[in-house]
Amino acid sequence: MLIKHRKASDVLGSEITPKSVFDDRRRFLKTAALAGAGLAASALPSLPAYAARTKLDGVVKSKWSAESLPEDDPINSYEDATSYNNFYEFGTAKGDPKDNAQDFKTSPWEIMVEGACAKPGKISFEDLIKPATLEERIYRFRCVEAWSMVIPWVGISLGDVLKRFEPTSDARYVYFETLLDPEQMPGQRAPVLNWPYKEGLRIDEAMHPLSILAVGMYGEVIPNQNGAPVRLMVPWKYGFKSIKSIVKIKFQKAMPPTSWNEAAAREYGFYSNVNPMVSHPRWSQASERRIGELFKRKTLMFNGYEEEVASLYEGMDLRKWY
């Protein structure tokens, strides 16, 4: 795998940016302290994954790199994307994931692959990533709560990964599951949702070139609070579809259950495509607040990826299949 552990002499891109240092004294202190600890413990191979922000090497540009990013979609700051998000396994407030996920253990990590495929089995995170190319994918991220960001993910094509397990003709859907570990994930000690977190995609959605498994952000290993070590990223759907810290992938014939659909079926459908025309019982989805902006902006059909994905839903009544 192309993950290089950080040496004390290495300079992170983010360290050149003074904003991240000024912005957050806490992180600065933590990084400084851990860099010191890293020096002392550099001989130990089992340094926890959170010990340092680790740069990812060999990330290649993609069709969705900065060059093709619309001008009015500036990338959100690292600080915004890593301190404000939903990851109910670590608490329901937006700052909880960052506060509670720092000690989350993401290595070793295994993913169980099962169901309608020729090569099921357990696969380590490293083996999952090794054969793939790490690509930079800068996507708009639209939360169902009507806020959005632009985030530079580093990921691998989900379709390429799934093909390695040789799904059969019965594999009409792909089911994903998050780790269930209430000891490490304090949010799971309360029945906020029906744990473990469950999500799913139709197989053609999963095979779509936009769909990725994200393992990094901002050129670095993905922080724990954002779904380390590996999460889904399907940018034309509301954020909750992009399941985090995946431990199970299952190919199946039937439409899989999803956690939010189980919690409130009328509010969260299986598809949950970003759609300004279909309002949610809690939020009008016609507009959104881009983090960093005061005024709301209009929400785009399929979060602006209409050209790429509209054909997946041809002939479907998107009001019915929300």
Partner: peptide, 12 residues
């Protein structure tokens, strides 16, 4: 002072 006490989404 560039504080972050209002989170990334101050309105919320």
């Amino acid at each position: 002072f560039g504080g972050r006490g209002l989170s990334a989404n101050p309105v919320e």
